[in-house]
Computed example of a mutant assay.
Amino acid sequence: MFCSALRTITTLKNSQTMFQGTGGRKWVKKVQQEWGILEKNLPDYIYVRVFEDRMDLMRAVIIGASGTPYQDGLFFFDFYLPPEFPQAPPSAYYHSGGLRVNPNLYVDGKVCLSLLNTWTGRGNEVWDPSSSSILQVLVSLQGLVLNEKPYFNEAGYEKQVGTVEGEKNALPYNENTYLLSVKSMLYILRRPPMNFEDFVKSHFCKRGHYILKACEAYLQGAVVGTLNDDACPPTDSNKEYSCSMGFKLALGKILPRLITALKDIGADCSQYEHLGKTETAQES
């Protein structure tokens, strides 16, 4: 079973029983060192739980950062530490819910990241047994994968960074990514990962208001992926660009289900009940 602490990596009471199926005492010591690194340095919006009886397994959840199309979403990853660890990197599995929310995260759970040796890279981009860590993997997932413009994560598209064409293409890509992120919220609300049920409920109760506030801002034309922690657009937002009508229609169709799901877990949605009628209003 998972240890109860979130963000606090709990040392096992009896590590002697963990040797079977692992790399032995040296392996156990290394894993405990990794736990210590996470306990002291885990950044905000990343939470980790470990198994009490399986040191080779851990589960992490990353909260989508503000200023990205993943804002306030929950993204779950399972990690397996092989007997060869740290000579070999951990294996990762993403809980996709059947949704491709990012070019690096596949529907079948594959995580494409050079640090995991599942993508090409060089230097400190690839796993180094002497210096790489699970913390580094988590920070890369948070900052490099679930970022503000995932369009440039598509293979070969990084060449378009800073170009007029690239920035133009990134806008509708963010719109589609946000729709997938909202659908992912619905999936997580319906099927929270085991032992994270209370965490999921607490998160969406706390952030439900801001999730709906973000939806309203986007329906009013704010650029997807530019909102602050309070779901407000920047004061210098791009007035020349408004979200596409197709995006607004698609979001309007999802909103009634989102509001219902948030209300069911106790989130205060009273201020945004009218958004549940958006679809009907737009079709009339």
Rank of each mutant, 00 (worst) to 15 (best):
Y173F: 15
P83Q: 04
T11H: 12
A155E: 09
K253N: 09
L105E: 02
D56G: 12
M185Y: 01
K29G: 01
G221D: 03
L249H: 12
Y272W: 15
Q271G: 13
W27K: 05
H203M: 07
S140Y: 03
T163C: 10
Q160F: 03
G73P: 02
T11C: 02
L135V: 04
M194H: 13
L135F: 07
P172I: 12
N174V: 13
N117D: 14
A217S: 15
V139G: 01
A60M: 01
F77P: 07
A155R: 06
C269G: 07
S96I: 05
E165Y: 03
R54H: 13
C269V: 15
L6E: 11
Q142M: 08
T260H: 13
T11Y: 08
D72I: 00
M185D: 08
N104Y: 04
M1P: 13
C112R: 00
D198G: 09
N147Y: 07
A60H: 02
R7A: 15
L115P: 03
Q142E: 02
Y210H: 11
G21H: 02
A88W: 03
V107H: 04
P233R: 13
A217Y: 05
Y272R: 00
L113F: 03
K13S: 14
N169R: 15
A250N: 15
T260C: 14
T278R: 12
F196M: 06
Q71M: 14
T163P: 03
N41E: 13
I9G: 00
S202P: 02
K149I: 04
M1W: 00
V182A: 06
A267S: 15
D229Q: 14
L189A: 04
T177P: 10
E197Y: 10
G208Q: 06
G24I: 00
P83W: 00
G166L: 10
A65T: 10
F204L: 06
K239M: 12
G97N: 10
Q87I: 08
I37N: 04
V28W: 01
P103Q: 02
Y157I: 00
Y70S: 11
V223A: 15
P233E: 09
A281Q: 12
M194N: 13
I62S: 04
W127R: 03
R207S: 01
V145F: 06
L138T: 01
V145P: 02
K29A: 14
A92L: 06
Y210W: 09
K149H: 14
D264Y: 10
Y70I: 12
N174R: 15
A250F: 06
T68C: 06
S131L: 02
P83A: 10
E216F: 09
R7L: 10
R100S: 13
N228F: 05
Y70W: 01
S284Q: 14
L227R: 09
M1Q: 01
S114P: 07
E148V: 08
N195M: 12
I265L: 06
D108W: 08
P82K: 03
P233S: 14
E273N: 05
V161P: 08
C3F: 08
S66Q: 15
R122A: 13
I211A: 06
S131T: 11
L38E: 04
W35N: 07
A261R: 01
V48G: 00
H209V: 10
D229I: 12
N174S: 08
A65C: 11
